[in-house]
Design a protein around this nucleic acid. Structure first.
Length: 623
RNA sequence: GGACCCGUAGCUCAGCCUGGAUAGAGCGGGUGGCUUCGGACCACCAGGCCAUGGGUUCGAAUCCCAUCGGGCCCUCCA
């Protein structure tokens, strides 16, 4: 810990001073200061004003004289600002060494939050009847980045993907195959998931409009899918597996990997529901209605809102009856009915497991905490589930990480040959109103490839491909992580191709520039020397920014907020770019200064790489 | 009818959780900077009653309430 340490030490010093002054305890803040107000700032004088019956200014002056930094050489002094704040200044002749040395460590920025506690992150969870589109990408990237951040905070993270292979959406494409005679092989080597989503699904659901008999078939088909011995069920198995495998390829291309796949069909067959249903009954969490609108149903009582029906009057469970046992399973509340087998080896060579009902291999993918990443349209359902889970385990063990959806801009809708009223449109699989993830990645990769080629004459084909891939993936990830979870992303194909300004490629470019500096000199950075020579504003700003990495990791873990790391990465890159422009490293006057600056450049690179790594973004040496 | 989310510069957004000093970025507009560690850049200018109205507070973009705009959810569908 670097900057966090300073903040905590100042906080405890302040606490001691308050105790010595016999003040009532107050909840004050110690945080990084805005430029022009020292390096670290504390608002405690404001909060004591009433209690001590003095002005914040007076208190500030008084307190500022009571600090002693003998045991904190990184702090130069504290000043009372006329506004009332206490402003602390860093002694960079000491702080530099501290930051640069620590930033070289492998686990720089790592924090102790989790105690290696097991935590389950579930994300993706897409019906295996279509290709992934940009809306799914937000879910996948958020889930992936949250997992990485939790790992950084020392949680033992297990990543799950729930494969919803038995719903109506799957039934729809099976209707297409069995009733409308769509070929079970995709034409012209088209990616199979694209074929199912773009052609079979759209065409089949289109037909429902005119052919009500066909629409009736989907329920019949759905029933047959759930009967594992039926011919239709076997076809559905084959088809959904094929689609899933294509979806996984897309996901792997984005650098996302899982530990285990859970199939909904197996959860249904596992009798988990029956177990949990009995448990709910015996714990009086649900009630049987014998009169009123819901007569004959089992319902979950919800205060304020309508009760949620769990089992219909005909005895058939509703869809929420799939989510509840799954949630309980993830939390390890029920005996695990599954065995595990290897599904595949992922692109990063990590083994991917899947659940199975036969076999003898037992593994454990449950956690004492669970985070489920699903968009906010499901917030009502998720509230019910987490409410129920809180009855079985402590409050907060089951967390729904929600976010707003991705819509398409009017221009992008137009480019799909469709029209829309207004500025943007919700995506719709049925209407063919979506942009596939593969398409976005391909378009972006091509754009970056061209850009990079025009800037570099002497790069080989494979180097160009590699750069294009790294920058394209980074760009998609960055755009999905950067906005607040509560903000709707309006996806615009053209806009997403931007490579200037606050974009991933800007950040990556700063890394590539740093690489070039190191490449152009024969001097090997020697970290045994002191770094007090780094004293210009640009150098100090960069060191401070590097040192503040842990503050942002801390913030992002505490709030489950991936965007904090995106913002930090950008700020770090901006600070370096300014340094780069104003401090000519290779033109340093003395060898000592040159060495110190080279070390700073290395320190920056390592930190940026680690920070981008949390976002699942690679840093290229050249681009 | 009920629940949740959003509203900050021409546009896209950060800051809001945890109230405090001068409300920050990017794009777009206007200047300036390559005898260059790579211009996917840097430096600067213009552009804001932080949706509106109340309240709490010594102090509100930030907390509370109401209103207005926009979105989204609420079926014995999945």
């Amino acid at each position: 810990m670097v900057f966090l340490n300073l903040l905590e030490n100042i906080r405890s010093k302040t606490d001691e001073i308050l105790e010595a002054k016999k003040c009532e305890p107050v909840k004050f803040s110690v945080e990084s200061a805005k430029p022009g107000f020292g390096d670290i700032t504390c608002n405690v004088p404001f909060l004591l004003s009433k209690q001590l019956k003095k002005s914040p200014q007076e208190i500030s002056v008084e307190l500022s004289e009571m600090y002693n930094f003998d045991d904190m050489p990184q702090i130069k002094n504290v000043e009372s600002h006329p506004s009332g704040y206490l402003n602390f200044s860093i002694d960079y002749t000491k702080f530099n060494d501290f930051v640069i040395r620590l930033s070289l460590q492998e686990n720089y920025g790592a924090l102790e939050f989790g105690n290696n506690e097991k935590i389950v992150v579930e994300h993706t969870s897409v019906n295996p009847n279509k290709a992934l589109h940009v809306g799914h990408i937000r879910n996948i990237i958020l889930g992936d980045v949250v997992s990485k951040i939790l790992k950084k905070a020392n949680y033992d993270v297990k990543i799950l993907n729930y494969v919803d292979d038995s719903g109506l959406q799957v039934a729809d494409i099976i209707v297409g195959f069995t009733e409308l005679g769509f070929s079970q092989e995709s034409p012209n080597n088209e990616k199979f998931d694209h074929y199912c989503g773009d052609t079979v699904y759209v065409k089949t659901t289109e037909k429902y409009e005119f052919d009500k008999e066909l629409e009736g078939k989907r329920h019949e088909i759905l029933k047959q899918i759930e009967d594992r011995s039926s011919e239709v069920s076997k076809i559905a198995q084959t088809i959904t597996r094929k689609v899933l495998n294509e979806q996984l390829k897309t996901v792997w291309n984005l650098g996302v990997f899982y530990d285990c796949l859970n199939f909904e069909s197996q959860i249904i067959h596992s009798k988990l529901w029956e177990t949990i249903f009995e448990k709910l009954k015996s714990d009086n969490q649900i009630k049987y209605e014998d009169k009123g609108d819901n007569a004959g149903c089992w319902v979950i009582p919800a205060d304020g809102e309508d009760d949620k029906i769990l089992v219909r009057s005909n005895g058939v469970a509703t869809y929420i009856a799939k989510d509840i046992p799954y949630a309980a399973w993830k939390l390890g509340l029920v005996e695990d009915p599954f065995y595990y087998k290897i599904h595949s080896t992922q692109k990063n060579s990590q083994t991917l497991y899947e659940t199975t009902l036969e076999g003898d291999n037992k593994l454990n993918f449950s956690g004492s905490k669970v985070i489920t990443v699903i968009d906010n349209r499901q917030i009502r359902l998720q509230k019910i589930v987490s409410g129920l889970m809180a009855k079985f385990k402590e409050e907060g063990a089951y967390t729904h990480l929600g976010y707003e959806s991705v819509t398409l801009s009017a221009d992008t809708v137009k480019s799909l040959g469709l029209s829309v009223d207004g500025e943007s449109a919700q995506m719709s699989g049925r209407k063919g109103l979506y942009v596939n993830a593969d398409t976005v990645l391909e378009t972006l990769t091509k754009r970056v490839y061209d850009e990079s080629k025009s800037r570099n004459e002497n790069l080989s084909e494979s180097e160009l491909q590699n750069i294009a891939n790294i920058v394209a993936v980074g760009t998609i990830r960055y755009e999905m992580i950067k906005p607040d979870l509560d903000k709707i992303i309006t996806f615009d194909l053209k806009n997403s191709l931007r490579l200037e300004g606050d974009t991933c490629s800007y950040i990556q470019y700063s890394y590539a520039r740093a690489s070039r500096i190191l490449e152009k000199t024969d001097v090997k950075p020697n970290f045994d020397s002191g770094f007090e020579l780094l004293s210009s504003e640009y150098e100090k700003n960069l060191i401070k920014k590097i040192g503040m990495f842990d503050v942002h990791v801390n913030d992002s873990v505490n709030n489950l907020s991936p965007k904090v790391i995106a913002k930090y990465s950008y700020e770090l890159a901006v600070t370096f770019s300014s340094f780069y422009e104003h401090v000519k490293v290779l033109a340093s006057e003395t060898t000592e200064l040159l060495n110190a600056r080279l070390c700073l450049v290395v320190s920056f690179q390592k930190t940026l790489k680690t920070s981008l790594g949390l976002l699942g973004i690679d840093a290229p040496e050249r681009m």
